[in-house]
Design a protein around this nucleic acid. Structure first.
Length: 582
RNA sequence: GCUCCCGUAGUUCAAUGGAUAGAACGGCCCUCUCCUAAAGGGCAGAUACAGGUUCGAUUCCUGUCGGGAGCACCA
């Protein structure tokens, strides 16, 4: 149980005694240390509904507060109840955390099967800077959900069946450079794509030719299927190189093509059940009028002063299927084959309308018991403050961004590192470079647009991954110098403010990790880890460890140990490994 | 036009409806005979605007002004 939960439990018991009824009151961390460690506004909330004086009710709560509780209480302001955790309680927490790999984080009581759909690049094109957010956010969320005890299925729903294959196939047949393909498959595939893309824009007939190639592929044409198979294989190899470098793993790579056979029957079923109907030769799903507020109906749109249909198209007039069709089929598969309780889509916020429609359709298909979330995120901007356009064709490639970041890290490492060998330094530079990109992404609120500024990303000072690394390195360094063995688990005592403050933050790890999943926001964890690191650096300056003796020495070693464990565990949940030396 | 997201220090970002809005970078001062100064300790500096709900609003509601996005045969 976390400290907040213990306080809530005690407070509930006290309220039962004071008011004579069972009321669960919330306790939250105090915003300001001057007020204590935790606070509750229960007296103010309850007094209002009972027409009581909030301070008078708070007085009663304080009077009934058991002396043996983990915290002392006091009243402040209009009726806040402030809790101050006893130092010995923090000491006991640190003592047990020292030998607990979970650092006090309990598995959830109701583990669920969560399908996490993220990254999902279109194949035949290399990943670019725009793929960073989904890939890194999704990976981190999957790690955190797993750590909390959920059954997580990660699925890379790659775009392997769409328009771009019509283009690549057309270019493959017309301008393929076979030797170039053998020498550098990804570069040649990109060239083919760009060639077709540019040609389509310039020439209507080429665009039509590309579209026909796609239709042929989707109808099972043998030649096009062979080209597609080879493109897909080459593309996947290229993608996997990046995922390996990022240490991002998928349980499945069930792309759009995996659902191809399900699409025609799905559309027939929806037509038969009157959930969809024909419109201008296409098959669409319309509003069913179940949403009273028309502005909230995802199948209606206001145009020229009137509400008109904005249907979800599931079959084009040429017989081809849409993104939407595949998504419905995919959702049914995840429910039926994987027994998913939740499906979380880590996808650009620009697709929010699509997901509103998809989730509404899921409801009509009886899939509404599932927890479906569109985990939207904002746009990555250039240094000019303008969005990087996703299909401009000349965005920086993800692999290049990683290389640049590592190169920048290498400069700093060579200048400042205490590592001896070139191998160690190269390894550290790779670690810091990749981590800088990941940490920058995860430290931002996911819905914010953020400016992609490589110089700042790899600045390596301030609120960055290396700052966290450095805390860990300082801690580990002490243990390397230690002559006696460190045995975790012996009692400790906390005296200095810096010790108590560090212990207070470390004790909150168990509250912070679950909070990330409430709104799928890893930046809660990055903020917390920076706070821990800051507290550790202050502590490190204020409280000598190796010069101390007796219980003080053991206590300080324990804090160093728990700090290192917390940082390493927290960073691991973000997909970032931590170095022992730097 | 309609819908959604976003407007916080000079800059980049934080803040489950709580108390004197936190960091970092940049700027100005200090601190290495001391466990890694990639650090620590100080100083200065912000909620776009106008209403409303509330004991209490950066947060919720309405409107205005800015920025971005979406609005059926693309994914």
């Amino acid at each position: 149980m976390t400290l907040a939960q213990q306080l809530e439990s005690t407070l509930t018991a006290v309220l039962a005694q004071v008011l004579g009824e069972a009321i669960t009151a919330a306790v939250s961390p105090a915003n300001d240390l001057r007020f204590g460690d935790y606070q509750s506004n229960a007296a103010m909330v309850l007094a209002k509904s009972r027409k009581m004086n909030p301070r008078a009710l708070a007085e009663q709560i304080v009077a009934a507060w058991p002396a043996a509780a983990i915290a002392t209480v006091e009243i402040a302001g209009p009726g806040f109840i402030n809790f101050r955790i006893k130092a010995e309680v923090y000491a006991a927490r640190m003592q047990s955390a020292a030998s607990d790999v979970r650092l006090g984080v309990s598995p959830v009581a109701d583990p669920r099967t969560i399908v996490l759909d993220f990254s999902a690049p279109n194949v035949a094109k290399p990943m670019h800077i725009g793929h960073i957010r989904s890939t890194i956010l999704g990976d981190s969320l999957s790690r955190i959900a797993r750590f909390l005890g959920h059954k997580v299925i990660t699925d890379n729903h790659i775009g392997d069946w769409g328009t771009q294959f019509g283009m690549v196939t057309w270019a493959w047949k017309n301008v393929l450079d076979e030797p170039a393909l053998l020498a550098n498959p990804l570069a040649e595939l990109l060239r083919l794509y760009r060639h077709a893309s540019d040609a389509s824009k310039a020439d209507e007939s080429i665009r039509e030719a590309c579209r026909l190639e796609l239709v042929k592929l989707q109808q099972g044409d043998a030649e096009n299927f062979a080209i597609w198979t080879r493109c897909l294989e080459l593309s996947k190899q290229g993608l996997q190189q990046i995922y390996t470098r990022l240490d991002v793993n998928f349980d499945h790579w069930l792309g759009e093509s995996a659902y191809n056979d399900a699409l025609a029957p799905l559309v027939d079923k929806l037509l038969a059940e009157n959930l969809a109907r024909e419109s201008d030769g296409a098959v669409c799903i319309f509003s069913d009028g179940s949403v009273a507020d028309q502005t909230k109906d995802p199948f209606l749109i206001r145009r020229d002063g009137e509400w008109t249909d904005f249907p979800m198209m599931i079959r084009k007039s040429d017989g081809g299927f849409n993104y939407a069709t595949t998504d419905i089929a995919t959702l049914e598969f995840r429910k039926n084959e994987w027994n998913a309780d939740s499906v979380w889509y880590v996808v650009d916020h620009r697709q929010s309308l699509h997901f509103q429609q998809l989730f509404a359709v899921a409801g009509r298909l009886g899939l509404d018991s599932m927890d479906l979330r569109h985990i939207a995120f904002g746009t990555i901007l250039g240094t000019d403050g303008k969005p990087l356009k996703t299909r401009a064709g000349d965005l920086p490639q993800l692999a290049d961004v990683l290389d640049d970041s590592v190169a920048a890290a290498r400069l700093t490492v060579n200048e400042r590192s205490r590592l001896d060998t070139d191998e160690e330094r190269a390894e550290l530079a790779e670690l810091i470079g990749i981590s800088a990109v990941k940490f920058t992404e995860l430290a931002h609120h996911r819905l914010s647009d953020y400016v992609f500024d490589l110089d700042k990303m790899v600045a390596l000072e301030g609120d960055t991954a290396p700052y966290l690394f450095y805390s860990n390195v300082r801690s580990r360094s002490i243990f390397r110098k230690l002559e006696e063995p460190f045995v975790a688990g012996a009692p400790i005592e906390l005296v200095e403010d810096a010790e108590i403050h560090l212990a207070r933050l470390l004790s909150r790890f168990a509250e912070v990790v679950p909070a990330v999943l409430d709104d799928c926001r890893p930046n809660i964890l990055t903020s917390y880890l920076l706070e821990v690191a800051r507290a550790f650096h202050s502590y490190f300056e204020a409280c000598p460890v190796l010069k101390a003796e007796g219980i003080t020495r053991h206590s300080r070693l324990t804090l160093c140990h728990v700090t290192a464990q917390t940082l390493a565990t927290g960073l691991k949940l973000l997909g970032i490994p931590v170095p022992e030396r730097m």
